[in-house]
Amino acid sequence: MNPPWLRNPPSSPWILFVPLFFPHPPFEVEQPWFSMYQREAIALPNSASGPQPRFLSELIREHGWDNLSEAQWREIKAVYFGMISRLDSHVGRLMDANTSKNTITAFFADHGEYLGDYGAIEKWPSGVNECLVRIPLLISGPGLASGTKSNALIELIDVFPTLLELAGIDRARQHTHFGRSFVACLADPAREHRHEVFTEGGFTTEEVKRLHTAPYPYDLKSTLPRRVPTSAGKVVAIRNREWTYVWRLYEGAELYNRIDDPQELNNLFGQVQYASIESELRERLLRWLVETADVLPDQLGARRPDVELPRPGQWHP
């Protein structure tokens, strides 16, 4: 956790990737982090209203989460917060050990956590709730704004081109991807980045058949897709400043007003007064799916020697 070369890093460019596991099920953490958060001060989880995807009720029933008391929910959240603080302390050790003055540091997660919201815990393949897709993202380094916070809409795929630009690497020489650098937001946190962001996940019922069951703590949840294949069905979602629209392959859609309901707990889908909004967001979602569909490879690869790329201005059927 404290490599010696970090205090005296090499003069040539280098990268350190640290895939820390916490916070992650099973929820447990040692002292002093276990007792760091007073249980009585912990807020209770948020409840949802309106139609919700089936996997939530199935997971709740399978695990008996609906039988947990308020004290048990607070205990779960307090332990989780302690795990986060333990993670923070280890990241701090790395930052303190690095003596380089020109290091760019990026800290981010792959997903969020229900932590009792919607009556559930952890995540789900077709779960695209706000608490799951809004993740921590911190970037620091020379020339970047310090101690500031940006409210820009950013996708995780944007981290890659951002780091390329910060490292002075020409992204045009890389493979085709749809991330957008947000370096401008790092210099000016008030800048906007995207007008809308997208999320996708889940599986088709045929893909579910190829999923494996898992041991504890995923033994119960890993059997649900096999028992109810549509519960992990494919899903796509679009978010802008005002709205979230979720389209599911096997279930009804969802619509949330992000201004009045920032945690996306009240599903408004199907209400007549929002029909035009649903139509507009569905059209934007379709456009994004087409815009980011399969593309021609940037260069011939050993895996596809039979593919001949068209020359500029040439149509290749």
Score class of each variant (00 low, 15 high):
G179S: 06
S181M: 05
L186A: 06
F203Q: 04
A184W: 11
G168H: 14
F182N: 09
A184C: 06
T199E: 10
I169F: 12
R191C: 03
V208Y: 01
A214E: 12
A190L: 15
K209M: 00
Y218C: 08
R173Y: 09
P215A: 08
S181I: 04
E200C: 08
A190H: 13
P161M: 03
E196A: 13
L186R: 15
F198A: 02
G201M: 07
L166C: 08
T213R: 06
T199A: 11
A190S: 14
A214S: 10
L164C: 15
P217V: 01
E200P: 02
F203V: 04
H195A: 15
T199S: 11
P189N: 03
L164E: 03
F178M: 02
V197R: 01
V197M: 09
T176W: 02
A187W: 11
H193T: 14
H175E: 09
P215H: 05
R191H: 12
E207K: 11
A190I: 12
H195K: 12
L163P: 12
H175I: 00
F198Q: 01
P217T: 00
Y216T: 05
F198H: 03
Y218A: 14
E165T: 14
A190Y: 10
E200Q: 09
R210Q: 11
G202V: 07
R191V: 01
V208E: 07
C185M: 00
K209I: 04
D170C: 09
G168E: 15
Y218Q: 05
E196T: 15
P217Y: 04
A172L: 04
R194E: 00
R173Q: 12
H193A: 11
A190M: 12
F178L: 06
F178G: 11
Q174L: 10
F203G: 00
E200A: 06
A172W: 13
S181A: 13
R173I: 03
R210Y: 05
A187P: 08
C185S: 04
F203K: 02
L166V: 14
T204P: 07
L164M: 04
I169D: 07
V208I: 10
K209Q: 04
F198E: 03
F182A: 11
K209N: 03
K209G: 00
V183K: 15
R194P: 02
L186I: 05
G179W: 05
E192I: 15
T199F: 01
E206T: 08
F203H: 12
H195R: 13
F198C: 05
T199C: 14
C185F: 00
P161E: 01
G168N: 15
E207H: 05
T204E: 05
P215N: 04
E200D: 07
